[in-house]
């Protein structure tokens, strides 16, 4: 899937080839967006932060020391951009009522009335809480995996950990999430699995 190596694209960027940068954006936008979402937590803001991060990366691309570690470098830039965003907007947000998370409620469930809807919302909140309860080091890989469905390879390229480490992290995180969510939702059955499948 990665026809050209990152380092090659970086080199072409430095020579003024913007198409190469477009390729890098396509390649990394999911990861950058997920990271921004992880820090900023709001849909539109996460998009803005992701864009800003790419612009910052493009600006300081000549400072990139190891072009083959572009992903890790980009993650750092994204983190910094998100931190700046929070510093700028954090004080304002504290006085704002948080917006309800944007959700699509399946038609059949909506027809069941408010009870069904609230049940789904509860489940979403449980998931959020469970992810927040994970050790810090597990959270970003979990977000990258479940929010953007990145492969282990893609996650590893972005966080700088090896593919085996990512596999270990996601395995342990998966077990913890299973336990956390089992406590929250004792009425687990196969129905959920079937619904998610279709």
């Amino acid at each position: 899937m990665h026809s050209a190596k990152d380092a090659e694209l970086v080199f072409r960027c430095l020579q003024g080839d913007t198409d190469a940068f477009a390729e890098l954006v396509r390649r990394y936008q999911s990861a950058v967006y997920a990271t921004a979402y992880y820090y900023v937590g709001r849909y539109h803001a996460a998009e803005d932060v992701a864009q800003e991060a790419f612009w910052a990366a493009y600006r300081s691309m000549p400072n990139l020391k190891e072009p083959d570690k572009f992903g890790v470098w980009l993650k750092e830039i994204t983190t910094r951009t998100a931190a700046n965003w929070l510093r700028r907007n954090g004080p304002r947000l504290r006085h704002e009522t948080p917006l309800p998370q944007r959700r699509t409620v399946p038609f059949e469930i909506a027809r069941q009335g408010p009870t069904g809807t609230s049940e789904i919302i509860d489940r979403h909140e449980n998931v959020q809480r469970a992810i927040d309860a994970l050790p810090e080091r597990y959270r970003l890989p979990v977000i990258l995996r479940y929010l953007q469905e990145l492969s282990y390879e893609e996650i590893s390229r972005f966080t700088g950990e090896s593919r085996d480490e990512i596999r270990g992290i996601l395995h342990r995180a998966g077990r913890q999430l299973r336990e956390l969510l089992a406590d929250a939702d004792t009425t687990e059955d196969d129905a959920q699995w079937h619904r998610a499948r279709k």
Binding site: Q51, R178, A196
Partner: peptide, 26 residues
């Protein structure tokens, strides 16, 4: 474990990036 993963995917999928950021960035 499968059910669990499905729940995670489902609940986070709402927040998934839907648009291609490339045109705006470029």
């Amino acid at each position: 474990q499968k059910a669990n993963a499905a729940l995670l995917f489902e609940s986070l999928s709402e927040q998934r990036l839907r648009e291609d950021l490339t045109p705006v960035v470029m």
